[in-house]
């Protein structure tokens, strides 16, 4: 092995350790029992692995974990499907002004959500879905449309127009072409948007804390923050809770991450 390779491997290895540190802290402290977890020994491995922290954290977080799941799946699916339709129109059925409309739509991806928070809350109250998971699903779908549209549009742009033309020559309409021709080709784009939306929505905090005030109905990120903010809860439980709250997105990344990376690498999120 050359010296250059050695340095390369050393740098990568060192970076890996740095990147793993927070995950290391939360995992090992999650496995400690209440009596042995302390700030002074936070870097040390537990003497004996204990599942007590996980059991306690699970008891406190599992209802919220369920809320998150029940919310994130329809929200990610719906916003992806709408994004696919929009992306199809913006890439293959352009009309005068469609680019301007696309830019106007895309703007929604970049706004700080604080600027719509108060009207949003009042609007949801007005249509009687405030404080409910369907209300939160609606919120995530609406504010997810811009980025899913962007991803699908960027994907469809690279599909040759001749395919669409061939289908229309065969007499297929716009909708039929989408169903029969485009959708079957869209799996990679769906992988990217679904993963992207799944993580974004799962990890959301702002909408969760403002749209759903009832602790029983809140998503897991808010429950975890409450857990860590209450002084009476032991640290091992908080750390175990962090692991539990992180697990679904972590699993998605470990399992399907390569599709996402591929999508990202091929320029999925570029205006």
């Amino acid at each position: 092995m050359s010296l250059k390779r050695g340095i390369l491997w050393f740098t990568l290895g060192f970076a890996l350790i740095l990147y793993a540190l927070p995950v290391y802290v939360m995992t090992i402290n999650g496995f400690k029992d209440a009596s042995s977890v302390s700030l002074a020994t936070m870097w040390q491995l537990p003497g004996r692995a204990s599942l007590g922290g996980f059991a306690e954290a699970w008891a406190m977080l599992s209802p919220n974990l369920r809320n998150s799941l029940v919310m994130v799946i329809p929200a990610a699916l719906l916003s992806s499907i709408i994004g696919a339709l929009n992306g199809y129109v913006f890439s293959k059925w352009r009309f005068r002004g469609s680019e301007v409309l696309f830019a106007l739509l895309l703007f929604g991806f970049f706004i700080p959500y604080q600027a719509i928070l108060l009207p949003l809350v009042r609007f949801l109250q007005w249509i009687s879905v405030y404080g409910t998971l369907p209300g939160l699903v609606l919120t995530h779908v609406v504010y997810g449309i811009s980025v899913t549209t962007l991803i699908f549009r960027n994907f469809y742009v690279n599909i040759p127009g001749s395919i669409v033309e061939a289908a229309t020559v065969d007499g297929a309409g716009m909708v039929e072409t989408f169903w029969r021709v485009m959708l079957p080709l869209s799996l990679p784009a769906f992988a990217v948007t679904l993963i992207f939306q799944f993580t974004n929505i799962w990890n959301d905090f702002l909408f969760g804390i403002t749209v759903v005030p009832n602790p029983r109905a809140q998503p897991v990120t808010i429950a975890l923050n409450n857990l860590s903010g209450s002084f009476s809860v032991d640290w091992n439980v908080v750390m175990a809770g962090a692991v539990i709250a992180a697990l679904p997105t972590a699993v998605v990344y470990i399992g399907l991450g390569k599709f996402f990376v591929r999508g990202l690498v091929s320029g999925a999120i570029k205006a």
């Binding site: 809320n67 029940v70 329809p74 699916l77 719906l78 409910t132 369907p134 109905a217």
Partner: peptide, 12 residues
């Protein structure tokens, strides 16, 4: 989809 939405409503 409708099933999932239904589940979401029930959860609430």
């Amino acid at each position: 989809l409708p099933l999932l939405l239904l589940a979401a409503c029930q959860g609430a």
